[in-house]
Write a protein that binds this DNA or RNA. Structure first.
Ligand SMILES: [Mn+2]
Ligand SMILES: [Mn+2]
Ligand SMILES: [Zn+2]
Ligand SMILES: [Zn+2]
Lengths: 165, 165
DNA sequence: ATTTCAATGAAACTGAGTTTCATTATCAGG
DNA sequence: CCTGATAATGAAACTCAGTTTCATTGAAAT
């Protein structure tokens, strides 16, 4: 009976406030650099969206982030949240994730290892999993097809442990 | 230097007419049984849609199938094509596949081994690949999470061999 | 022939995602 | 400080794949 580790959970987000501030500062700085490169600037709205995405949960829909941001700044617009999420995605700091209810979710990618998702069609919960072996065989298939892989999504739908009665 | 087979292409669809007719008959019969079980019947429109999906290419959008079906029966409606594709999916004969241009594609699942997809963001081509090893490690992850997997999608986006200059 | 209910096609609707546009903030040079 | 130029914003409008509605037709059952 071998001790299988292999698959690792990612209960994420810095719980320690100081740790969180450091993390935010680091990502903020990366975002700022990216924006400056395009002649844009890191406005307080953009920073607010980033902060919300980092703190208010892991797999948030546009409207989740919008709601969270609105609590801090009631004047913020949905369009701005949308545009900021796109910018974050564009520069590789965030990524889109599928979900049980058709709405796309967003997650922070920075400083996080690659992982895929198991999505509960009952409660919507999204569990993260990671399997180096899987990635390995995936890369093998990609190589054999002489395919230039840019990104992938691997999403398993079903019932989570809690919802499986 | 081991002879790697492992990843197999699926250039699909019975080329031989006789073979094709047999295949169609078999799937038709399954579909009919499914419909009867729900008090529905296999109309000529429904059969036409099935035939188109089987013959006119492998990863067709709703409107691809609609166009193909319309050639054979100009009176057929988009709603009927849509509903038939949903029925085929519902009974496990067909499945939805992602694509480069946001529109869902459909493929026949009956009598075909499970496979995943590499999708070219340049030309839209969808290549099929299959890796028992990947499925194996995927199942391992699922077991470890005590997840009840119902279906999954594993789609790799990038540039196909031809489009990679 | 009459009843019943499935099936259809045209057209209308839905809603997540996206864009437009008038207005407001930001910033660099003077 | 002003002053222009341009980036940024929020509200509202728009898109469009997917889906539903509804009036009509078809096909079986009685
Ligand atoms: Mn995740
Ligand atoms: Mn396929
Ligand atoms: Zn669940
Ligand atoms: Zn290509």
């Amino acid at each position: 009976m071998t001790k299988t580790a292999e698959v690792i959970l990612f209960p994420r987000h810095a719980k320690n406030p100081a740790q969180f501030r450091t993390w935010l500062a680091s990502i903020s700085s990366t975002f700022k650099k990216y924006l400056e490169g395009k002649g844009l600037n890191l406005t307080h709205q953009r920073e607010e969206v980033l902060k919300c995405l980092l703190s208010a949960g892991n797999h948030m829909s546009l409207d989740d982030v919008y709601a969270a941001a609105k609590k801090k700044d009631p004047t913020i617009g949905r369009a701005t949240v949308f545009r900021t999420l796109k910018l974050l995605e564009e520069c590789g700091l965030a990524a889109e994730v599928g979900s049980a209810d058709g709405r796309t979710r967003f997650e922070i990618k920075a400083d996080r290892p690659h992982h895929d998702h198991m999505i509960c069609i009952e409660c919507g919960r999204i569990a993260e999993f990671e399997s180096p072996m899987m990635e390995r065989f995936q890369n093998k298939a990609i190589r054999q097809h002489k395919f230039i892989a840019l990104w992938h999504r691997h999403e398993i739908f079903g019932r989570c442990e809690l919802c499986a009665k």
